[in-house]
Amino acid sequence: MQRSKLRHAAILTLVRDRGNLTVANIAAALRVSQETIRRDLRPLAMAGQVVKLHGAVALPAEDSEAPYERRMRENSEAKRAVARHAARHVSDGDSLMLDTGTTTSIFARELLRKRNLTVVTNSSDIARTLATVNGNKVYMAGGELNGDNGAAFGVTAVGFVASFNVRHAFISIGAMDSETGATDSSLDEAEFARMLLKQGERRYVLTDSSKFGRRALIKVCEFSDIDVLITENPPPDDLAAGLLAANVVIDVAPQRGSVIR
């Protein structure tokens, strides 16, 4: 029962993030059979959470605006606070990797204050933001592009980043709790983020506090795979205890207008 509930949540997240999806698309993303997805869709459709189309699934009309643009606006002030604070960890001339995500996209815009960066990413948005400015060098992973967020995923993208070693590796996540660590609803994004963390000397998770205490279907990493968590509000006590036990630095962005010492 618990896994079916997790799949239901993952299905809703996928459809919100990527728009209309076929049963085959969802089954491939979650690595289950199409029949399992069809069974999962029945209660979601009966509850009005999704709408079945010809061979595809969508959100009800009022929720079906462009998913990535909508997520860019969600918790935007918190994400900007995280991004501004994360930029303090990067110096001119550094090498870094960034995965795709709304928080990392906002972070990339904060990095426009830096010079001579070497950037490796699978996000076309991040690549466009940082390429050809300030003496930066940008490497974009190849592979199949996601139609919503314009990011490359799959074996080719993962293999590409595996050939780089950088000073800083930054990932975003879908959820984090004290029992399962960092999780996501997309298998492709989780696999890419997992590889990216392996290639950085210093490994960071960027997330706003709305992700705390939540759990998604697919494991991204253990706490021990992270060096620094950057967020805008302290995590709850149980999550903080797990992070500190794994020697993760919890770096909380100061509130706007406070003095950084």
Rank of each mutant, 00 (worst) to 15 (best):
T118L: 12
T118P: 05
T118N: 04
T118R: 06
T118C: 06
V119K: 06
V120M: 10
T121Q: 06
N122P: 05
N122W: 11
S123T: 08
S123K: 09
S123G: 12
S123L: 10
S124Q: 08
S124F: 04
I126H: 08
A127K: 01
A127D: 00
A127E: 10
R128N: 14
T129N: 01
T129D: 03
T129I: 08
L130V: 03
A131W: 00
T132F: 08
T132C: 01
N134Q: 09
G135E: 02
G135D: 02
K137R: 10
K137T: 14
K137S: 06
K137C: 04
V138R: 07
V138I: 02
M140A: 12
M140W: 03
G142V: 13
G143M: 07
G143C: 11
G143E: 13
E144V: 12
L145D: 06
L145R: 12
N146I: 13
N146D: 14
D148G: 14
N149C: 14
G150L: 12
G150F: 07
A151W: 09
A152D: 05
A152W: 09
F153K: 00
F153R: 04
F153D: 12
G154D: 12
V155D: 10
V155L: 14
T156Q: 15
T156L: 15
A157E: 15
V158D: 05
G159F: 03
G159V: 02
F160D: 11
F160Q: 09
F160S: 10
F160M: 13
V161F: 00
S163F: 03
S163H: 13
F164N: 06
F164H: 05
N165E: 12
V166Q: 02
V166D: 03
V166R: 06
H168L: 15
H168T: 07
H168W: 08
A169D: 05
A169W: 03
I171V: 14
I171P: 05
S172E: 09
S172L: 06
S172F: 01
I173F: 01
I173D: 03
I173P: 02
G174W: 04
G174A: 05
A175H: 06
